[in-house]
Amino acid sequence: MLSTLGFTVGRIDGIWGPLTAAALADFQLNMGLGGDSVCGGQTLQTLQRLVRPLGDASVVAHITETQRLESGGGQLAGRRIAVGEAGGLEPVTASVRREIGRNGAEVLTVHHPDWSAQAAQVNRFGAAVYIGFEVKPAAPSISFFQGRHFVSRAGQKLAADIAHRLEPMFGAIPTNGMGLPMLRESAMPAVLCRFERIDVLLERNREVADVVTQSTRDLLADLHVAEASRE
């Protein structure tokens, strides 16, 4: 509701973070409701009354997400990209780091079994995009963040493009919106690539790195073109 009214809350992820608390206090001050950041009955009723005729909050959140990516231009050079894995896939993240680094980006690789810890680290790094890798005994998939009130469209686009480019190597890979901790708690568009067989992934890790690099570069370029066309 705060996002719909134009207050800066970041992504609509259901997490009570400092941006949400500050936005609520700002709203309360604007409405003469004090400014204690406590969403009590009067504050909630005021929010509901103002928001009801305005429509979808995800529109504002989506604009915020894409503006953050557009601001750096349509290329990898000079951008911060994060790559992570939860254990055993260091060769994959190393290949991705090298390939994206060749395009002029600053790359952070994260190795930690706790996805929330990874999210905190890449948030501190200020990454524009995060790509994670995991092996599980289940069908391959590529996930992006989707919550109750928000879908990361940039993450969805990146997931779909990576899946399309990987199809010749791994067959059809479904994409899905999920609220996994890494996807939900990261402050940037994020995707989590899950594979079934570690041996096949390690064998083709250089090709996977090339795909991830191309897809990330194309995402930034497409958003930059969209921004230029609006101007």
Rank of each mutant, 00 (worst) to 15 (best):
V59N: 01
A61N: 02
H62Y: 08
I63S: 11
I63G: 01
T64Q: 10
T64I: 05
E65V: 09
Q67K: 01
R68A: 15
R68D: 09
L69W: 04
L69C: 00
L69R: 06
L69V: 06
S71Y: 09
G72W: 00
G73K: 11
G73F: 11
G74L: 10
G74A: 15
G74F: 11
Q75T: 15
L76Q: 04
G78T: 11
G78F: 00
G78H: 07
R79C: 03
I81F: 11
I81C: 06
V83Q: 00
G84S: 13
E85W: 09
A86L: 05
E90A: 08
V92C: 06
T93W: 00
T93Y: 02
V96P: 06
V96D: 00
R98N: 08
R98M: 08
G101W: 04
R102T: 11
N103I: 01
G104C: 05
E106S: 14
V107F: 08
V107G: 12
T109V: 15
T109D: 02
H111G: 04
H111M: 07
H112E: 12
H112A: 09
H112Q: 12
P113E: 02
P113M: 05
W115Y: 13
W115H: 13
W115F: 09
S116F: 01
A117N: 12
A119M: 14
A120G: 09
Q121E: 14
Q121W: 03
Q121G: 01
V122D: 04
N123A: 14
N123P: 12
G126N: 09
G126A: 09
A128Q: 12
V129W: 02
V129I: 15
V129C: 04
Y130D: 07
I131Y: 00
I131L: 01
I131A: 04
I131D: 02
G132R: 07
F133T: 09
F133I: 12
E134F: 08
E134V: 14
K136W: 03
P137K: 13
A138S: 15
A138Y: 08
A139I: 13
A139L: 15
I142W: 07
I142S: 13
I142C: 06
I142N: 11
S143A: 15
S143F: 06
F144V: 01
F144T: 05
F144K: 03
F145M: 01
Q146C: 12
G147I: 03
G147E: 07
R148K: 15
H149Q: 07
H149A: 08
F150D: 07
V151L: 11
V151G: 02
S152R: 13
R153G: 07
R153A: 03
R153M: 13
K157P: 05
K157D: 13
L158I: 10
L158V: 09
A159C: 04
H164Q: 13
E167H: 08
M169R: 11
G171A: 06
G171K: 05
G171S: 10
G171T: 08
A172K: 15
A172N: 12
A172T: 15
A172V: 14
P174W: 03
P174F: 08
P174E: 07
T175A: 13
T175R: 14
T175H: 05
N176T: 07
M178V: 14
G179H: 01
P181N: 10
M182T: 01
E185C: 00
E185T: 04
E185Q: 14
S186R: 04
A187E: 13
A187V: 02
P189H: 05
A190Q: 06
